[in-house]
Simulated scan of single mutants.
Amino acid sequence: MSNLNLSVVILSYNTKDVTGRCLAKALAAKEYCEKKLKNKVEVIVLDNASADGSALAIKKDFPKVKLIAQKENLGFAKGNNLVMQKIKNPFILLLNSDCYLQEESLYKAIAYFRVNLNCDVLGARLNYASGLLQPSAGSLPNILNIIFWILGLSLLPFFNMIVSPFHPKEKKYFAKAHKTGWIMGAFFMLKKKVYDVTGGFDENFFMHMEEVEWCKRIWQKGYKIWYVPQVEVVHLHGASTNFDLNASFSNELKGIKYYLKKHYGVYYFILKPVLILGLILRMIAFSLLRKNKRARVYLEGLKAI
């Protein structure tokens, strides 16, 4: 594998300060990677019509960055697809604007591709700002593990022996490199040929679950997805989307609904009553615990399915 050139793609939307810190870290990682591997790394930012002066700040403070300033917010899926289709380099990293690379992050990721030819898509270990692990990979959703997840059964170790969890929480799942069903889109590195063959994100998703659905099609085409904890980044989780728990969970449920209808057809309508039951049980449980804010999250979730 002689050509190790990489394009780093960052979407920005009203996160001027956070994006600035992200770019400073990304450029430091770029320099380190180029020095170690003698490759070329470009950093591209697509600004999704930010109203906080993000585009002007990037143009002024980071002249080495390629800036694409949109006049409308394209969302995560469409925005990334727009950039990826124009890239010529053999490797692409999709990086959230609230992710901070370590100096060696890009080098370690590209080096892993070089030694593991069976790796086509790579996800990193994501850490919260506190340093704690952020779960960021899991098994692809199916009828059974979605039932276990919505009913809370996947939190019990016994049930995880029966079915591979959609949202694993156990630390051992994230302890070493292994193949995985999906990785989080906050750090999503891939060979360009994977995009060329699979067509990228389904643009019917605006936000949430789009990377999981793409991972499904990536596996269907015979490519391999790896979770590699040797590559670490800090993910502020939500800073790039002005995080709102109600909206986030509702959007995830909408994404799950679309995913299941697309890949499982009529079985979604069999599953829907279980989803409703699970949300009602969660709402009752958190109400009894006097955690009314969390209970309202599940009430809003009912509207999404």
Rank of each mutant, 00 (worst) to 15 (best):
L74C: 06
K78E: 13
I58G: 11
L106F: 05
M161Q: 15
A111E: 12
Q70V: 00
L151P: 05
L156S: 12
G138R: 10
N89I: 08
N118Q: 14
N145K: 09
I92R: 01
E170T: 13
G123N: 04
C119N: 08
K66W: 00
I68A: 12
E103D: 10
G75V: 01
E103Y: 03
A77V: 01
N116G: 00
P165Y: 03
C119G: 04
Y100A: 09
V83F: 03
G131T: 10
K71H: 09
M161Y: 11
L93I: 08
S164C: 03
Q85P: 02
P63W: 05
G138L: 06
F76T: 12
A124M: 02
F113D: 02
L74P: 01
F62V: 06
N81D: 04
L74F: 07
C119T: 09
N142V: 00
I150S: 01
S139K: 12
N118A: 15
F91N: 03
G138T: 10
Y128H: 14
Q70E: 15
D120A: 01
A137F: 11
M161G: 15
Y107N: 02
D61V: 01
I58P: 10
G138W: 04
P157T: 04
L132D: 15
L67Q: 05
L144S: 13
L117D: 13
A109N: 06
L153Y: 06
S97N: 02
Y107M: 00
H167K: 13
S105Q: 03
A177P: 00
K176S: 12
P90I: 08
R114H: 13
L94W: 00
N89K: 15
K88S: 14
Q85D: 12
V163L: 08
L82N: 06
A69K: 14
Y107H: 04
A111R: 09
F76I: 14
L95K: 07
N73Q: 08
K176C: 00
K108D: 01
N116K: 01
D98L: 00
K88P: 00
A129Q: 14
P157N: 08
L74H: 04
R114K: 15
I150M: 00
N80S: 08
K59V: 04
A69I: 03
L93M: 05
L132K: 15
I68F: 11
L74Q: 08
F159Y: 14
L122E: 07
P90N: 09
L122H: 03
F76Y: 08
L74M: 11
F148D: 10
I58E: 07
K88H: 09
N127R: 14
Y107A: 00
Y128M: 09
